[in-house]
């Protein structure tokens, strides 16, 4: 299993063998959001880094999920349409959001690694 990268917006990214990158939200993020009742997933298209690609609706509020790196969305997790609770139950597993092909594959390495993300969380708490 390849190592994870993270953003300051509490998204995780995992490089797949085919060069694509899978994106989801972290355990911390799902905990902060509370019970997820709906996920509006991205279109299969190009997004720039920072674009609001998806929206997570919890019982309480709607929150944006931002494109972590510029690239083309290849696939979205259709399971979330019927089972949005997967985001809470398995945020790093079946609760993934989408898979995309980054325009600059090297940019992934510049994101936070697990240690840096753990430090970010510690500073947040």
């Amino acid at each position: 299993m390849s190592e994870l990268r993270f953003t300051e917006d509490h998204e995780w990214l995992r490089a797949e063998a085919d060069g694509s990158v899978t994106v989801g939200i972290t355990a911390y993020a799902q905990q902060a959001l509370g019970d997820v009742v709906y996920v509006q997933l991205p279109e299969l298209q190009h997004y720039d880094r920072g674009d609001e690609a998806a929206t997570v609706e919890s019982v309480k509020a709607a929150s944006g999920v931002y494109m972590p790196l510029t690239g083309e969305v290849l696939e979205v997790n259709q399971q979330l349409a019927d089972q949005p609770e997967l985001v809470n139950e398995q945020p790093l597993g079946q609760g993934w959001f989408f898979r995309f092909r980054p325009s600059d594959p090297a940019a992934l390495a510049a994101l936070l690694d697990e240690d840096a993300y753990a430090r970010l969380l510690a500073a947040t708490a």
């Binding site: 509370g34 019970d35 009742v37 919890s58 019982v59 309480k60």
Partner: peptide
């Protein structure tokens, strides 16, 4: 308190 550890959905 907006929610307890049970969470909004289960509390409801």
């Amino acid at each position: 308190p907006v929610q307890y550890p049970l969470g909004v959905l289960k509390e409801h």
